[in-house]
Design a protein around this nucleic acid. Structure first.
Length: 321
DNA sequence: GGTCGTCAAGGGGTG
DNA sequence: CACCCCTTGACGACC
């Protein structure tokens, strides 16, 4: 028997006026003559993003959802090179503590997925430096929430540069210069164009990083690999983690636009996968990456609650019998 | 109140 | 090497 718990990404289709990703571009920032006023505006937006995050967590509790991906755009321009003197954490510290306390109290697993401009295997030192800056932001946010940062931040391997082996070794080289505290925060995910499960496993096993299996990416980019043969090794990358194994689940938009995320998750596709892993792990958390966000989660739960091979636990989790 | 262009980033792909 | 596309949500301008 396996417990399956579902989560969703960043924003809710139900909760109105609650974007955790409001922003200000550098172009807009520069148009404000008074630099101090512009920074205060950034702080206002950030605080609003955090307040919306807290509202989303409360919405999650009401809907019995215990897995949530925080927005990686909580603080606009936090890493901008023109704002090195801005202590963006300080004015937010109270709200961060409140968010962290709420998540802990209600047992909500939170994590991050910075966008694909974080490229840890880039041959360009500037790119790696900026990537580290972004990771540091994520680390400070988690620390500010008083949440253990271990395995809270999922990344792609990075660029392939038409040389898979070389680009994997570049990752290893660059990894050696990453501070230990940041290293421990990272998980790696197989992607849909550059690095297969096999490629990603190579890094995860060598560097002791948990692998987040993305089923949709695998279907889009696997050559002749069968994920089923590697499942035990994927599970093993989580053996020292304080958190249960997690994965990503989404469905192709169409045959033609296979890589794009569909509005909802195809229940048959999901269960073809679950059938294979049943009993291999006591618990698995599945992050739903669908255009319709939490609405996709609710729809999926509606579709599976009548199945004979499941027993419902709450609004977002069930036993797989 | 819809629709379109803009903003940011790095990689990927084309010519 | 030049160029445009990918992706994402927000947001402003426009009718």
């Amino acid at each position: 028997m396996t417990i399956v718990r579902l989560g969703y990404v960043a924003m809710s289709m139900e909760l109105k006026n609650a974007s955790p990703s409001q922003t200000m571009t550098f172009t807009q920032f520069q148009k404000i003559k008074d630099r101090e006023a512009a920074i205060r505006k950034l702080e206002q937006i950030s605080l609003s993003n955090l307040e919306h995050t807290l509202r989303l967590l409360k919405h999650n509790v009401f809907k019995e959802i215990h897995f949530y991906r925080l927005s990686s755009r909580l603080i606009p321009l936090a890493n901008h090179e023109e704002l090195p003197d801005w202590n963006y954490i300080k004015p937010l510290s109270e709200k961060l503590i409140e968010i962290g306390a709420y998540a802990r109290k209600h047992n909500i697993r939170v994590d991050f997925h910075p966008d694909h401009f974080v490229v840890m295997n880039s041959p360009k030192t500037e790119v790696v430096k900026n990537s580290l800056k972004t990771l540091r932001l994520h680390y400070l946010l988690l620390k500010g929430m008083k949440i253990d940062p271990t395995h809270r931040c999922v990344l792609h391997v990075g660029g392939n540069y038409n040389e898979t082996e070389k680009s994997l070794e570049q990752f290893v080289d660059n990894w050696m210069d990453v501070p230990r505290a940041i290293q421990k925060m990272i998980m790696l995910e197989n992607d849909d164009t550059s690095f297969t499960v096999d490629d990603t496993l190579y890094l995860c096993e060598k560097l002791e990083i948990p692998l987040v299996f993305d089923y949709h990416h695998h279907l889009a980019h696997h050559y002749y690999e069968k994920w089923e043969d590697k499942w035990d090794r994927i599970v093993a990358t989580w053996k020292d983690s304080p958190l249960p194994i997690k994965m990503h689940i989404s469905s192709p938009k169409s045959e033609k636009e296979f890589r794009h995320h569909s509005d909802y998750v195809d229940v048959d596709m999901f269960f073809r996968y679950l059938k294979e892993i049943k009993g291999t792990v006591p618990e698995i958390h599945c992050m739903i990456e669908a255009k319709k966000k939490d609405e996709a989660l609710f729809k999926l739960m509606e579709e599976i609650k009548h199945r004979e091979d499941v027993e419902m636990i709450d609004g977002s989790s069930f036993y797989l019998k």
